[in-house]
Design a protein around this nucleic acid. Structure first.
Lengths: 206, 206
DNA sequence: CAGTTGCGCTACGCTCCCGTTGCGAAACTC
DNA sequence: GAGTTTCGCAACGGGAGCGTAGCGCAACTG
């Protein structure tokens, strides 16, 4: 037997083991560069290697192409989902949107979002991964709040879940993205969006 | 006098005049390439020249850098804004959102949008121009509908215009962008968004 | 110990694009 | 016709990044 058992019981081949430190450095460097606004297309292996303090070979040995590396890098990201207490639907929604607003004030988050949005056509696997990691958990959380509200009667029983989610997430996103470029949205966007959405635009008589 | 007066009365220098056809071909080629998903960063002058059937020199003679060219190219785009009859706020909003949905089904529109969104950090002039040309006219139209509704009493008088606009535009955008990648949103997204937004999420007793 | 594999590094040939130059023809003015 | 400018085209030297290979050392196995 020319193999050795590791702690997990998997076989380890002879020779120097791959450095986990290098691996982490590569992933970190990738996220760093993406977070600085470098798009996937311009992202070069050489730049990553330089940033990570690593030889190009070390990268090529682990990932056969750039997309794989980026996918793996994105996979290490975990978006913060706040605890949604359930005190009231309004409170939970405000809390939820506040986190989104806070997040969007970080350049790194914005850049990652940009990549997810614009490269979704050319790199479907990337978009898929992003949806899986960042989007779905949030959708689930948000959906939970809405369902709870519909059960307790705080929300209309015939509320269109999907539309409600699109309205809330879309509004905060639109606001942070388009409402005066570079200018942060007002402190109370979250509250205001939630209140308008809960109340509805229509006047009472109609 | 070694100049000749053109119809407009401006002086025309001696020599072969610049070809308007070439100019148009360059701009078209640029928009074509961007519309195929090529980002601004990867967009090469050589590719534009080849696509336009034009020498590189002809491009460099008119634009000193790529950003200028892209800005000018974007400036030729005019987004369709439907006539908003004013019959009812609901109808106008549905019409408005329907156009946005229809537009977002064209790859070209999606790519241009992507560029506007993701390159806003690195090319502020570009984002500025996009806002000016595509965004503001629509915001104005949408704002008009909302104001009219507030005057006629169809909408709440204390409606937060900005929030309402963010909710409507954001919702359709979110929906077309994120709700199942590649899958077109349902036929009646526009109606559903508008109705949920007008009615509000809250149950009547609350 | 010998054997194997990973490490960082340098260097290679290759491709793409840059921005510029020179060419002969075309399209103008005077 | 003489002069001027633009045209498309081909070519240039140069930089950046590709993916690969070879170096000598490091870190493992047996």
């Amino acid at each position: 037997m020319n193999m050795r058992q590791t702690a997990e019981g998997t076989a380890r081949p002879a020779g120097r083991p791959r450095s986990e430190k290098a691996e982490k450095a590569i992933v970190d460097a990738t996220l760093d560069l993406l977070g600085e606004g470098i798009g996937v297309a311009e992202l070069s292996i050489e730049a990553i290697a330089a940033r990570a303090g690593v030889g190009k070979t070390t990268i090529y040995r682990r990932w056969s192409n750039k997309e794989d590396l980026v996918v793996d890098a994105l996979a290490t990201l975990k978006p913060p989902i706040p605890p949604l207490s359930g005190t009231s639907v309004r409170d939970d929604l405000v809390t939820y949107l506040r986190v989104l607003r806070e997040e969007s004030s970080h350049q790194r988050t914005r850049c990652i979002m940009n990549i997810a949005m614009s490269d979704s056509e050319r790199h479907p696997r990337l978009a898929e991964r992003f949806r899986e990691i960042a989007l779905e958990p949030r959708r689930t959380a948000l959906r939970g709040v809405l369902r709870r509200g519909m059960e307790t009667g705080e929300l209309r029983a015939d509320l269109d879940e999907e539309m409600a989610m699109a309205i809330l997430s879309g509004a905060i996103m639109w606001y942070t993205k388009w409402h005066r470029s570079g200018v942060e949205p007002p402190e109370d966007v979250a509250e205001r969006i939630v209140d308008e959405a809960l109340t509805g635009f229509r006047a009472s008589g109609w």
